[in-house]
């Protein structure tokens, strides 16, 4: 077993893991942060996207030991108390989710996009989401939500409560 220390959502943590433990498993099983999902075993679905040192990565395609010394943000780290992150709020307002399984990864990926590119075009949003699969929504409302979070006027009615 190896001790691995890193920051998660601002707090310093140390986990005791085997070298073969995936980062996503350390987050979910050792730290109880089950918001980061696992949707495939081929590194293609993007349900597991987190930020490591400010950049989006697939937590299922990293070993926990590789995270030593880094700062990680998961979906749980976005909201400020009861107040949703603007991207989370936009997904809610624009019905950017149905079952919600892909949503944590979608949101973490989308937040990273706006960090690099605060005013993406629709095409840039769709290209950026190449690594995030959704089996429910058909993507249109996800794209709208991201456009809205980027401050563009989009016309979709408020999702029903």
């Amino acid at each position: 077993m190896s001790e691995v220390s890193f920051k998660v959502n601002g707090s310093a943590v140390t986990v005791d893991v085997e070298p073969r433990t995936l980062l996503v498993d350390a987050l979910r099983q050792n730290l109880g942060l089950t918001g980061t999902h696992v949707g495939c075993d081929t590194s293609q679905c993007g349900c597991c996207v987190i930020h490591m040192d400010g950049t989006s990565v697939k937590a299922c395609t990293m070993l926990a030991v590789q995270a030593e010394g880094s700062a990680i943000t998961t979906i749980e780290g976005l909201a400020q108390g009861d107040e949703l992150h603007p991207m989370q709020a936009a997904f809610r307002d624009h019905h950017g989710l149905q079952c919600g399984f892909c949503t944590p990864g979608m949101i973490m990926s989308a937040v990273d996009l706006l960090q690099h590119n605060p005013k993406p075009t629709e095409r840039e949003i769709r290209e950026w989401l190449e690594g995030n699969l959704c089996r429910c929504t058909g993507y249109h409302n996800i794209v709208k939500a991201i456009q809205a979070a980027a401050g563009s006027a989009v016309s979709s009615p408020m999702a029903a409560e």
């Binding site: 950049t55 989006s56 697939k58 190449e130 690594g131």
Partner: peptide, 9 residues
Amino acid sequence: IGDPQVRHR
């Protein structure tokens, strides 16, 4: 190449 997250690593 791949998608943004693959390109980041």
